[in-house]
């Protein structure tokens, strides 16, 4: 479904991605692991068009989306749920959700999806008219996920969905992601909570300094000493 071929990207003089090859099949949940600064977020940003790759190809459903504008990537069916949730703090919950459907024009469909998200996440339904900045961290995470769903994507990129959340909220968040995948949406997830992520993923890639150093079935990586070393050195 999604394929990255030798993708390179840089911020100014710093090369953040040094040739990434990666594949996500339809219906899969794939995890991208690695220590901070390994280039995981940059990989997602390159896919969604926030960073323009300096080399390589990104193919989605047999169409090249390398270097496409974020709006075009979104329109092709890839939503990106960014690191740190990034809800619009002064917009209401409902407006935030509406922003998720910004590229869509089918008013009725949008209204239906809005209701569906609000039913799925009752807390968002209750706080529809409240400014998103007043929500708790966990609620903001629900909102960010709901917002990504509003685009009706076929593939969602999650960037560190557990970041800064209390452990119980992390569990809920992961349950939601598992649920999204069960309903047929493909997921590519960057996560630092490696073991929790590996438990629910089908496959995983491990990154180190801009390269993929390890990949395989999640079950196998679970017991791989190399994963621990990628995080803690030694």
């Amino acid at each position: 479904m999604l394929r990255l071929e030798a993708v390179r990207a840089a911020y100014g003089p710093v090369e953040a991605l040094r040739g990434i090859d990666l594949e996500v099949g339809a219906g899969e949940l794939v995890c991208l692991l690695g220590a901070n600064g390994a280039g995981k977020s940059t990989t997602l940003r390159a896919i969604s068009g926030l960073v323009r790759p300096t080399a390589g190809r990104i193919v989605f459903d047999d169409r090249a989306i390398t270097g496409a504008e974020p709006s075009a990537v979104l329109a092709s069916g890839i939503a990106h749920c960014p690191e740190g949730r990034r809800v619009f703090p002064h917009l209401t919950v409902e407006e935030n959700l509406a922003m998720g459907a910004y590229v869509r024009r089918d008013r009725e469909g949008i209204a239906q999806d809005l209701e569906r998200v609000c039913t799925h996440f009752p807390i968002l339904g209750e706080r529809r008219r409240q400014a998103a900045g007043t929500l708790s961290g966990g609620e903001q995470q629900m909102l960010a996920i709901g917002r990504a769903l509003m685009a009706r994507p076929r593939l969602i990129l999650f960037d560190e969905p557990s970041l800064g959340l209390a452990p119980t909220v992390v569990e809920t968040t992961f349950a939601i992601i598992a649920d999204i995948r069960r309903q047929g949406t493909t997921v590519l997830m960057v996560e630092q909570n490696a073991y929790l992520a590996l438990q629910m993923a089908d496959r995983a890639y491990v990154m180190e300094t801009g390269r993929i150093v390890l990949s395989g079935r999640a079950r196998d990586l679970m017991n791989d000493e190399k994963v621990r070393r990628a995080y803690l050195g030694g």
Partner: peptide
């Protein structure tokens, strides 16, 4: 505790 902070709570390895 450090392993848990870095690699997650479900560490069983």
């Amino acid at each position: 505790d450090v392993i848990r902070a870095y690699l997650g709570a479900a560490a069983r390895a």
